[in-house]
Design a protein around this nucleic acid. Structure first.
Ligand SMILES: Nc1ccn([C@H]2C[C@H](O)[C@@H](COP(=O)(O)OP(=O)(O)OP(=O)(O)O)O2)c(=O)n1
Ligand SMILES: [Mg+2]
Ligand SMILES: [Mg+2]
Length: 1134
DNA sequence: ATCCTCCCCTAC
DNA sequence: TAAGGTAGGGGAGGAT
């Protein structure tokens, strides 16, 4: 089931069409454009400065340092009062807070010998995740006379370095390595240790060596041209680990913000914008093959283009900053009051809002320790070329006096200000200063809304002297970061923001309520936040230039002209009204990645490779956020007809934007699933790949990925199996078999499973690839899901049951695709779909797409992209079963919700119409809790999982269930993690009553555990015994903390979230905290904060917190009522 | 009315 | 030579 919507061709309004953008008006009002049209840049005496590559590549080091600091800081707080231990801890730390790394070893060797020329003539390109890291390898190479290439070019690079090689990488290297040796990083480390360059032979990756023995030119050609490259995408074993999510390093600037303001402030008058002569004369294809240099810096020359690009993109840095911030400081959602949305929602309360923004942030960071630059006009930019098209990221106030602004091309900036000095990017510096900045803000107030890495709103309502607080904060920022910040203070976010503008640089400004009107009446509309290039144009066209004029327009008119909300916004803002609240936390609604620079393809396989990178990138980000999503949107920038190679180097130029989306029946974060869908969308465009200038992938309809922890993993599998196989009288079987009619809902819920059985036991075994041993965790999960489904003993109920005999017969061959019930297919979890899809080489997803497309009456324009199997086959084949399937399901719905007869829940709507059996289309409110709670846990779990659950929805529902449960059920349900009832499993049974006995049961249990949490458990076991009479977990924890660095699982295997040790840790805390909630809330508080601190350092703990906090919060709510928050902030306040 | 998709706009 | 990303708000228009 997939919805495919039709694409539309859209004009790009954001990225300026080079200098030609001035023509935007031709295209109507949605033109954003800027551009200094003047090509004849002044040839000022710029002092060329070698900055390139100096500022980046070291982000990891900052992160390590940050980690170390956090460690120490944590230590100080966690062991508070235990000074001597703290000293101990410090003593144990190495310089970077970790055990000595390979690099340390290598460095140690250097001390003894002069190896500065060791790697003379050797130039490496590092591919993917390595140990030592990319950055460390770079340093090692540079230090020892070698070269380090950020981009792959077979002309320069002599060795490719990489650690682990997923299949996909092998393929990449075949086409990209051009016969160069692909060696392990230890070759470098060992060579340094030995003081000579060791032969690569023992460091070569065998698989590449085997697959790819010194490829001849001919072979290479064949390899890269065979449409085999297409297939290879299907087979890629996607490993996310070497993604670039943690990377943040880079530079860049965009034309983006140049939109309105640049026009306004540009020395070139608005009407004076000049057409790009190249464009106006363009008649040819507009396609020029990139120069050798360009080639090596675009998608054509770099197998890891996406990753490398992001490492250097400033916009990527600021765009992804928020995620890193939340990972460090937590979501802060605990502090969220109830929301006031909208600009005009009435809110009587008088507030005091502070807006804090660093002055010319990137420049300030660069200048921190370079006093010699003070006073000069400065800009942060990748390039210092007088004719360059690199963008200015930030300029200082001296340079701004010349008109130099963010987003401007360097050549234009140089034209305005020939003395402009360029300083390089320093992404780790920005990250560090931002951390310090927020540390200070958090220290003063817990209601902080992070706008960006250099900017935040703070609600300081109730503070007696906000001006003093502002000066205090500014001083602290300046002292700590050596950068200046400005502060605006007012009664709402809008006015505070405006006040900051007035305050800059290095100042503060307060707008009292009675000054608002005065202040605004003199203000141009484009200075209103929210009014960009487009709105400004539209307003100007109506003769409106300042707020006073805007105020004269009745709200209804504005709403008619600009839309209800926008009109409201304009009306309110013109009067200084803004009732938005300071929001600590905002739930993420989409995750995406796009690249619109350096994108050039020569063959479909280039494009497919790029799509693969995008999918891996997005999949990785989803996984890091523990999210899955249902809708994939592919966005493509296509060279506009007649547009030439852009003026901006490797830019996308003037483009049409195409976009199309597909909604899956089941949310996913699997790169392979995403890739198939994405490739399908891509194919449907039928583009000449030469015209593609940019692509992006976005995932929406996000849900929390609970399945990775409980529902679809091994545990759940075992529960079901145990229940079905060994306990026919257990909940599940009993209710069903004993009393069908009474427990109809049970049966119907199970019918879903059963239907899957019908579908899957035909093929579940052959669907499992033979090379299981190298299969990923996900693969394993799928395998087990199949196992679960085939075990169903309820086959006699309604559907024909396939005997074990027949089952076996079918092992060797796939049933014809048309034998599969499409409607059942749709309701399968993504893992299973992916598995089936693999077995049918992509036909499943393709057909799900068409199925839904047909059913909803939408059509693809591009028929060819559609499956070869006639729709009738699918429908006719499934007709009978569908009746049952849907009928049964609708029974479930009805029984769940006897009161409501919402259209969707009616039987008929399931039978006819779109035939969508998707439980997820139900809203939670349609589910009758009373019925639900009668279900056995397993069934309940299935239903909950089927329901559309984003974030805490599932939890809320479960909480409701819990509230209505009897005490023992409640305890059990709670213990099992909120949304899963897994305690029947014998393994799970071990996790019950972890604190029973003396010593508590977990001590014994932890002895036999391995994996992520085992080290932690064993350490606190020791701490437990070290205490004569341990009175609380918090004191055990505190004493164990000085060994904290050993408690941080560094290498999590893929199944860590389901490992016994992880679950044991989780249960340990859950059960303990539960027992403390009623009589020792302080203990609960301390524990949660301690764990939350650990969470800043390791994903293991982050996950613990993610599960633990909402869970405990709910329980606290049960006992103390709402409004009682266990967590105040992510960083200790109070 | 309300939802959904496909955009555009805005901000950093 | 260069690194034009990311996410939310919201409007138009169609389906229900
Ligand atoms: N088009 C843009 C806008 C901003 N930034 C980066 C560089 C800025 O330093 C940082 C913060 O953006 P601000 O809007 O706060 O601008 P500055 O801090 O540079 O200047 P100001 O003093 O006006 O705040 O984001 C960028 O790279 N490109
Ligand atoms: Mg700033
Ligand atoms: Mg800012």
């Amino acid at each position: 089931m997939a919805v495919v919507s039709q694409s539309r061709v859209v004009q790009d309004s954001r990225i300026m069409m080079d200098s030609a953008s001035g023509r935007g008006s031709i295209l109507g009002e949605k033109r954003g454009g800027v551009a200094m049209a003047d090509d004849t840049a002044c040839n000022g005496n710029s002092r060329p400065r070698k900055h390139k590559n100096e500022g980046f590549g070291d982000f990891g080091k900052y992160m390590a340092e940050k980690k170390r600091k956090l460690s120490l800081q944590f230590q100080a707080e966690a062991s508070d009062g235990v000074r001597s231990m703290m000293e101990d801890a410090k003593f144990h730390l190495t310089s970077d807070g970790k055990p000595p790394s390979n690099m340390d070893v290598a460095n140690a060797a250097v001390v003894h010998r002069d190896l500065t020329g060791l790697f003379d003539g050797i130039s490496i390109f590092v591919d993917g995740f390595t140990i030592p890291s990319h950055q460390e390898l770079r340093e090692l190479m540079l230090k020892h006379g070698g070269r380090f290439e950020n981009y792959f070019s077979c002309d320069v690079v002599t060795h490719i370095i990489c650690s682990t090689l997923p299949d996909s990488k092998i393929r990449d290297h075949r086409s990209f390595s051009r016969g160069l040796p692909v060696v392990k990083p230890s070759w470098i480390v060992d060579s340094i240790s030995c003081g000579r360059v060791l032969p690569v032979s023992s460091y070569v990756h065998e698989r590449i060596a085997r697959d790819h023995p010194n490829q001849s030119t001919l072979l290479r050609f064949l390899d890269s041209t065979k449409e085999d490259s297409n297939n290879c995408l299907l087979k890629k074993d996607v490993h996310m680990k070497n993604q670039s999510h943690n990377v943040h390093n880079p530079l860049a600037s965009s034309h983006t913000s140049s939109s309105k303001k640049d026009i306004e402030h540009s020395p070139v008058s608005k009407k004076g914008l000049i057409c790009d002569s190249k464009i106006s004369s363009a008649h040819g294809s507009g396609l020029e093959s990139p120069s050798e240099y360009a080639r090596s810096h675009c998608t054509l020359g770099d197998a890891n283009f996406v990753q490398n690009y992001f490492k250097n993109s400033r916009l990527h840095f600021i765009g992804t900053w928020r995620t890193r911030y939340q990972n460090r400081f937590g979501t802060g959602r605990e502090n969220q009051d109830q929301q006031h949305d909208g600009y005009s929602t009435s809110d009587n309360m008088f507030r005091t809002i502070m807006h804090v923004d660093m002055d010319c942030f990137f420049v300030s960071v660069a200048v921190r320790n370079r006093p010699e630059l003070v006073g000069k006009p400065l800009a942060v930019c990748h390039s210092d070329k007088t004719k360059g098209t690199a963008e200015i990221s930030s300029s200082n106030y001296t340079a701004r006096a010349f008109g130099v602004k963010s987003g401007m091309f360097i050549r234009d900036a140089k034209a305005l200000c020939p003395d402009l000095e360029v300083v390089p990017y320093d992404f780790e510096g920005y990250e560090q200063v931002a951390d310090e900045f927020y540390d200070i803000l958090h220290k003063h107030c817990k209601r902080v809304q992070a706008v960006s890495c250099d900017e935040a709103y703070v609600d300081v309502t109730g503070v007696e002297d906000p001006d003093f607080l502002a000066s205090q904060i500014r001083k602290e920022i300046n002292d700590l970061t050596k950068c200046t910040a400005s502060v605006g203070i007012a009664g709402n976010l809008l006015m505070a923001r405006i006040a900051t503008k007035k305050a800059k640089p290095d100042g503060q400004f307060r707008i009292h309520p009675n000054q608002v009107e005065d202040f605004l009446s003199h203000m141009s509309i484009e200075d209103l936040p929210g009014v960009g290039w487009s709105l400004q144009e539209r307003l100007n066209r109506k003769g409106i230039y300042d707020c006073k004029q805007l105020q004269a327009i009745p709200k209804e008119i504005l709403q008619g002209d600009f839309g209800v909300k926008t009109g409201d916004m304009l009306w309110c803002y013109a009067r200084g009204i803004d009732n938005r609240q300071v929001q600590n936390y905002q739930e993420r609604k989409s995750i995406g990645a796009e690249v619109n620079w350096g994108v050039r393809f020569n063959s479909p396989s280039d494009a497919h490779h790029f799509l693969t990178s995008l999918c891996e990138e997005v999949s990785g980000r989803l996984q890091e956020a523990f999210l899955i999503g249902r809708t994939l949107t592919l966005k493509i920038k296509k060279r506009k007809e007649g547009a030439r190679e852009p003026e901006k180097f490797m830019g996308c130029g003037s483009c049409d934007n195409l976009s199309k989306s597909i909604t899956l029946g089941c949310a996913t974060n699997d790169a392979q699933v995403m890739l198939r869908v994405t490739k399908q969308i891509f194919a449907s465009f039928h583009l000449d790949i030469h015209n593609i200038r940019g692509m992006g992938l976005q995932v929406t309809k996000l849900e929390q990925n609970v399945s990775s922890v409980y529902t679809q993993g091994q545990q759940h599998q075992k529960v079901l199996e145990a229940c079905l196989q060994f306990s026919p009288k257990g909940n599940l079987g009993k209710k069903l078999l004993d009393d069908e009619s009474v427990h109809r809902s049970n049966a119907t819920a199970l019918s879903e499973i059963q239907d899957r059985d019908n579908l899957l036991h035909i093929n579940h075994q052959h669907a499992i690839p033979s090379d299981k041993k190298q299969k990923s965790f996900k693969e394993k999960k799928r395998v087990e899901s199949f196992g679960k489904i085939r075990k169903g003993p309820f086959s006699g109920l309604k559907q024909p049951f396939m005997s074990k005999e027949k089952e076996r017969q079918n092992v060797s061959s796939l049933p014809h695709y048309s034998e599969l019930d499409q409607s059942v297919l749709q309701s399968l979890p993504p893992e299973i779909i992916a598995e089936l899809d693999n077995a049918y080489s992509g036909a499943v997803i393709q057909n799900l797409t068409s199925f839904k497309t047909h059913v909803t009456g939408k059509r693809f324009e591009e028929q060819e992209s559609f499956p070869s199997i006639p729709l009738q086959n699918i429908l006719s084949n499934t007709c009978n079963e569908k009746e049952d399937h849907f009928g049964v399901q609708s029974n479930l719905i009805q029984s769940l919700d006897p009161k409501q007869s919402v259209g969707r829940t009616q039987t008929s709507s399931f039978r006819d119409g779109n035939g969508e059996p998707d439980l997820s289309s139900l809203s939670l409110s349609q589910v009758d809790i009373a019925t639900l709670e009668e279900l056995p846990y397993d069934v309940r779990e299935d239903i909950l999982r089927s329901l559309k659950t984003h974030k805490s929805n599932a939890l809320e529902l479960v909480t409701e269930v819990v509230e209505n449960s009897n005490e023992s059920d409640k305890q059990e349900l709670l213990l099992s993690g909120g949304s899963s009832g897994l305690l029947h499993c014998h393994q799970e049974a071990q996790l019950v009553g972890l604190w029973d006995g003396d010593p508590p049961k977990w001590i014994e249990l932890s002895k036999n555990l391995q994996g992520a949490g085992a080290a932690f458990l064993q350490h606190i076991s020791k701490a437990f015994y070290a205490h004569e009479h341990p009175e609380s977990l918090s004191c055990i924890l505190r004493d164990a903390m000085h060994l904290r660095e050993f408690l941080m699982p560094m290498h999590l295997d893929q199944a860590w979230e389901e490992s016994m040790s992880f679950r044991c840790c989780l249960e340990l805390f859950k059960q303990y905290l539960l027992s403390k909630i009623s009589d020792d809330l302080e203990e609960v508080y301390i524990i949660l904060h301690t764990v939350k601190r650990l969470a800043t350092e390791a994903i293991f703990w982050k996950r613990i917190v993610q599960i633990l906090v909402p869970f405990i919060q709910e329980s606290v709510k049960d006992i103390y009522g709402g409004g009682f928050s266990v967590m105040t902030t992510g960083y200790d306040e109070i």
